[in-house]
């Protein structure tokens, strides 16, 4: 609505010179901000497609000084020893097993998303559809979980994982996020509350159980919101760094990409950082998030407008 009024004010005959200059300036600033938001990703791509020796010489050309796929091959473990030497001028670059870390990230994020969204939906159903003693108090208690900074629970959770023998394991990385997060319950409850109840009432009178109702009525109707939550959960799980770092510090076989990428830099000596390899790895680690973004970007933008928190 206000966009039409805005364009009327700006381009219509009644707009003053001041209004037009204002709009032009605003567009320029917005364009600059967009450029700053996007440029680092382009620069990482350009770096990943270059040879280190050109980069260390200080070449800042917009296109890669000497285009090569070697760094991406290297990070994916597809390059031969000679190719690695060609790309890095050393025998052994502090490489990391991208495919292994990718597999781990996929397992972790998928399991967390499936569990968290489904179990939180069950809780949201109870809070939005059932009546039982202490319901509002319990919901409020869940919400207070939003206030606790992650580090406060991190130390006791670490001890719990040690007691369970789950350090350096998938169970340990996944467990705290698998059954619920207060945000997921809150997010879905808000949507469930808005679903018209008359359909369910008819089903109940026909003798349907609440579980049937949940599965056959609520879940299908709320499917778009469940997908939105799943995307948010997946990205959050994918990006999680501190928890896997403390709970799985030693085992590469379970470490996600974020932790593996960090070890990649801590293992690289400081004298001549392997920037091209690092940027190729960084981009590859961002790739799945980019894919999700391209597929669900619009939905994410709308969800932020709707829920207003996260």
């Amino acid at each position: 609505m206000s966009s039409t009024s805005g364009s009327m004010a700006g381009t219509g005959g009644s707009g003053s010179v001041g209004q037009r200059v204002g709009r032009l300036t605003a567009w320029l600033i917005l364009g600059l901000i967009l450029f700053i938001s996007i440029f680092p990703f382009y620069w990482a791509l350009r770096t990943g497609l270059s040879f280190n020796r050109e980069l260390l010489r200080g070449d800042q050309s917009i296109l890669p000084p000497d285009l090569t796929w070697l760094n991406f091959k290297r990070v994916l473990g597809l390059a031969s020893v000679e190719e690695v030497r060609l790309a890095t001028d050393r025998e052994n670059s502090g490489s990391f097993d991208y495919l292994l870390a990718l597999r781990n990230s996929v397992i972790i994020a998928t399991v967390i998303t499936a569990g968290q969204v489904f179990f939180s939906a069950m809780a949201a159903y109870a809070f939005s559809r059932l009546r039982f003693k202490g319901r509002d108090q319990l919901f409020f208690l869940y919400l207070t979980g939003l206030m606790v900074p992650p580090i406060f629970a991190l130390i006791p959770n670490l001890i719990l994982m040690k007691n369970l023998g789950w350090l350096n394991s998938f169970q340990g990385i996944v467990a705290p996020f698998f059954l619920m997060t207060p945000f997921a319950v809150f997010f879905l409850r808000q949507f469930f509350l808005g679903i018209n109840r008359s359909l369910e009432e008819a089903a109940i009178i026909d003798g349907a159980s609440h579980f049937t109702l949940f599965r056959r009525v609520i879940l299908p109707i709320a499917a778009p919101q469940m997908v939105t939550l799943a995307v948010l959960t997946y990205v959050t799980a994918w990006n999680e760094f501190l928890w896997p770092l403390v709970v799985a510090p030693q085992d590469e076989n379970v470490q996600p990409l974020t932790v593996a990428l960090n070890s990649f830099t801590t293992q690289t000596p400081g004298t001549q950082p392997d920037w091209s390899g690092l940027m190729a790895g960084t981009l590859l680690a961002a790739l799945p998030v980019l894919a999700i973004f391209i597929a669900f970007g619009r939905r994410l933008v709308d969800s932020i407008q709707f829920s207003g928190i996260k």
Partner: peptide
């Protein structure tokens, strides 16, 4: 435009 502005937020902090 809104999506492009959101892109950095979606990236892992490590990246």
């Amino acid at each position: 435009i809104r999506g492009a502005l959101l892109l950095p937020w979606l990236m892992p902090n490590v990246v």
